[in-house]
Simulated scan of single mutants.
Amino acid sequence: MTTEESAAPTLLGLPEMPASVYPAEVRARLDPDAQQLIERYPQSRSALLPLLHLVQAEEGFVSRTGIRYCAERLGLTTAEVTAVATFYTMYRRRPAGEYHVGVCTNTLCAVLGGDQIFAELQQHLGIGNNETTEDGRVSLEHIECNAACDYAPVVMVNWEFFDDQTPESAKQLVDELRAGRGGEVRPTRGARLCGFKETARILAGFPDPRPGAVDESGAGGAPSLAGLRLARGETLPGRSAGTRVVAPRRNPPLDSSPGDAANPATTPGAHDAEPPAQTAAADPAHPAGPVNGSVRQPQEDDQEGAAE
């Protein structure tokens, strides 16, 4: 670990300090792993994303030393590596806690309580966004959508899901993490928790060492599949026996029949219970569509224009 984290951060979130190099013992550990990652790609620069995860697994964030290491291994400039490291939010520019807590504050999670959860966690932990508690246990970040809207509001710890959270359950969660009981905390779905550095190594593309992790799916459950089941006309759990849900009625193709093409006002919309009223009936003074089944022909417009 370098001393970079003690330096004042720049606008990019990286410490304002010349990049040093990793000590020999660190390079001896990193070099074989880095080479393994690079050899997976026909172009070495394609290994940049996993290589950034690798240096993050070493220090708990992407430091200037890590950026210099990636640049040297891939034949890139430090500016090129920095551009990538500061674009993707999963790469931390400050040291992360052992457990990095992300609160989704995107639209659905926010309106269902995500904003309140994030605000109360900041107050409860005494830290702000992208900051870490003094004991180094927990860091906090508001994050964008993690494709778990059907379980909103969602909190993630080292990118494992904790669904249907409340301010109280979220505060209890971080208290258990700070008390050293992270190994006992089980996500709603997915594998058991591991530390942030261990998670970064897994994201770099190395085997997941957690027992049963491959078999513990983090995919969506019944709420994720509800729409598909409804579209198939299946019955959802909790409905009375024998009740069959029918998919919404769709508009027929435009060329389904001559009658539809001649009088589109008789074609119900996807969400209309009854065919919409003709335009003339809705606003007789300003008809803007077919009236009484007649369709104005372009020739009539041309003739009127010529007469004027």
Rank of each mutant, 00 (worst) to 15 (best):
M90H: 12
Y91M: 15
Y91I: 09
R93T: 15
R93M: 14
R93Q: 15
P95Y: 04
P95H: 06
A96C: 12
A96T: 00
G97C: 01
G97A: 03
E98L: 09
E98I: 01
E98N: 08
Y99H: 15
Y99R: 01
H100M: 05
H100Y: 10
V103M: 06
T105Q: 11
N106W: 14
T107D: 07
T107E: 08
C109M: 10
A110S: 14
V111K: 12
V111H: 09
L112F: 13
G113D: 13
G113P: 08
G114A: 06
D115H: 11
Q116R: 15
F118M: 13
A119D: 14
E120P: 08
E120Y: 05
L121P: 10
Q122F: 09
Q122R: 15
Q122V: 02
Q123A: 14
H124F: 14
H124D: 13
L125T: 09
I127P: 11
N130G: 01
E131Y: 05
E131L: 00
E131F: 07
E131H: 13
T132R: 15
T133F: 00
T133G: 10
E134V: 12
G136Q: 02
R137P: 02
R137E: 07
V138L: 03
S139L: 08
L140C: 04
L140N: 03
E141G: 05
H142C: 09
I143K: 04
I143G: 06
I143M: 11
E144M: 14
N146F: 10
C149T: 09
C149N: 09
C149G: 00
C149D: 13
Y151R: 11
A152D: 05
P153R: 04
P153Q: 00
V154Y: 05
M156I: 01
M156Q: 11
M156V: 14
V157Y: 06
V157N: 00
V157Q: 02
W159Y: 14
F162C: 03
F162P: 10
D163M: 15
D163R: 13
D164G: 01
Q165L: 10
Q165M: 15
Q165E: 15
T166I: 05
P167D: 05
E168D: 14
E168L: 12
S169G: 01
A170N: 07
A170C: 10
K171V: 04
Q172K: 12
Q172M: 08
L173M: 10
V174E: 07
V174L: 10
V174K: 04
D175V: 00
L177A: 02
R178H: 03
G180M: 02
G180H: 03
R181K: 13
G182P: 05
G183Q: 10
E184R: 13
R186F: 01
P187L: 05
P187Q: 04
T188I: 01
T188E: 05
G190T: 04
A191Y: 03
A191V: 02
L193K: 06
L193V: 06
C194A: 12
K197G: 06
E198M: 00
T199W: 06
A200M: 14
L203T: 07
A204M: 08
A204E: 04
F206E: 01
P207R: 00
P207V: 02
D208M: 00
D208L: 03
R210A: 02
P211A: 12
G212M: 08
V214R: 13
D215I: 06
D215A: 15
E216K: 11
G218M: 11
G218C: 09
A219T: 06
A219M: 11
A219Q: 02
G221R: 12
P223Y: 07
P223S: 01
P223H: 05
S224Q: 13
S224W: 00
S224R: 13
